[in-house]
Design a protein around this nucleic acid. Structure first.
Lengths: 160, 160
DNA sequence: CCCTGTCAGTTCCCTAAGGGAACGTATCGG
DNA sequence: CCGATACGTTCCCTTAGGGAACTGACAGGG
C-alpha cells in the first residue's frame, strides 16, 4: 500500500503508531496479555489472516514488544510473551478499553471488566498527573516544545 | 484492502480501533487538538494524501469524534473541532505520548512537553484506579467477563 | 512403518486501500 | 479577468490485507 513512514517523525504519537499502529497489533497484544500466546490460538481467536499474523508478530518481536520463546523443543514450538516494553503498551490498551466502554459499548454494557488487585473492586483507569497526583486530561494541559522537538532534518525526514 | 470489520467485535479495544485505528487518525486528532483545524493545514502538516485525509475526516465526523463547522460562509470554509467524545480520545493520545517518550524518544528526549494546569509543572499522565486512586497498570488487574460479553454461548454452555 | 493430527508458519492469488498528482468549485482581492 | 486560497474529488498506480493451500517437523496410534 506504500505507507508513509511514521517512525521518523518527531512525534511520540507517530512513533508509537509506527510500532502498534497496524490495525491488528493492539488486539494481538491484548490476546497475549490475557494468556493467548500461541500462533494458532491467536489466529483462530481473532480471525486474522495467518500471513498478516506472522508479519505482525515478527514486527513486534523486532521492535522489542514481544519475545518469541520455545516452550517445546521436541516438536519445536514457540509462544510469544510480553516484554516490559510490551507490558507498558497494555496500559495503553486499558485506556482504549475505557474509551470503548464509554462510547461504543451500548446497551449491553462493557464486554470485559477489570478488577483492581489493590482494592479488589471492579474499576477502570483514570489519568492523573505524575507530579501532583490530581486528575490530568487533554483539557488540563499546555503543550510545549520539548528537547527532542525537531532535531532538524539531519536524520528526520518529514517531507519527501 | 478488504479489511476485517472491527466494529462488530465484542471487544472495546477492537471497537476503539474501528473508530481511530486507521493509521493517520490519531495524528489528525492530535493536530486538531493543538489547534490545527483546517483541511489544508492538516494536510500540509502531516504530509497525508488529500484523498485519505478527506476520507478520515468524514469517518471521524460520522462517528461523532469531530464536528465540521463553517467558519466562513461567503467563501464556504470549514474547520474541524473535537466533540466531547473526541476530546476523551485525546486522553488516549496522552498515554500514547507517554509510551512513545519512554521507549522511542532516544537521546534527543521527548519532542513535546506537557504542563499540567493544576500544578503548573511539566509532567506526564499516570494511570490510577477510579475506585481507590492507587496506581493501576496492566499487571495490577484481573480480567473478567462483563455484561456485554458475547451472549451467544449461553445456549451451548451452561456455566463457566 | 505408515497415517493422521497439531503447530507454526510460508506461498500464492485477488482485491481494496493508501499515495500522489491533477482537476473542480467557490470566493475574494487587485 | 487573473490569480490565490480553501476544500475537496477523481484518476491511476502500487502495495498491503484476506483467504486458502501448502510445507515441515514431530508425536501418537494402529
Amino acid at each position: 500500500m506504500q505507507r508513509t513512514r511514521f517512525g521518523d517523525m518527531a512525534c511520540s504519537i507517530a512513533r508509537t503508531m509506527d510500532v502498534i499502529g497496524e490495525p491488528w497489533s493492539p488486539l494481538i497484544l491484548r490476546n497475549i496479555y490475557v494468556g493467548i500466546t500461541r500462533f494458532e490460538q491467536i489466529q483462530q481467536g481473532l480471525g486474522i489472516s495467518r500471513k498478516v499474523l506472522a508479519e505482525r508478530l515478527r514486527w513486534l518481536v523486532e521492535n522489542g514488544v514481544l519475545e518469541r520463546q520455545e516452550y517445546s523443543s521436541r516438536p519445536p514450538r514457540h509462544e510469544y510473551t510480553l516484554t516490559v516494553k510490551g507490558l507498558e503498551l497494555c496500559d495503553l490498551l486499558l485506556v482504549m478499553v475505557r474509551w470503548g466502554d464509554r462510547w461504543t459499548a451500548g446497551e449491553a454494557g462493557p464486554p470485559v471488566l477489570y478488577r483492581h488487585h489493590a482494592c479488589g473492586e471492579i474499576s477502570h483507569v483514570e489519568l492523573h498527573c505524575s507530579v501532583c497526583d490530581q486528575p490530568m486530561h487533554a483539557t488540563d494541559v499546555d503543550v510545549l516544545p520539548g528537547p527532542g522537538a525537531e532535531a532538524e532534518e539531519t536524520s528526520a525526514r518529514t517531507s519527501p
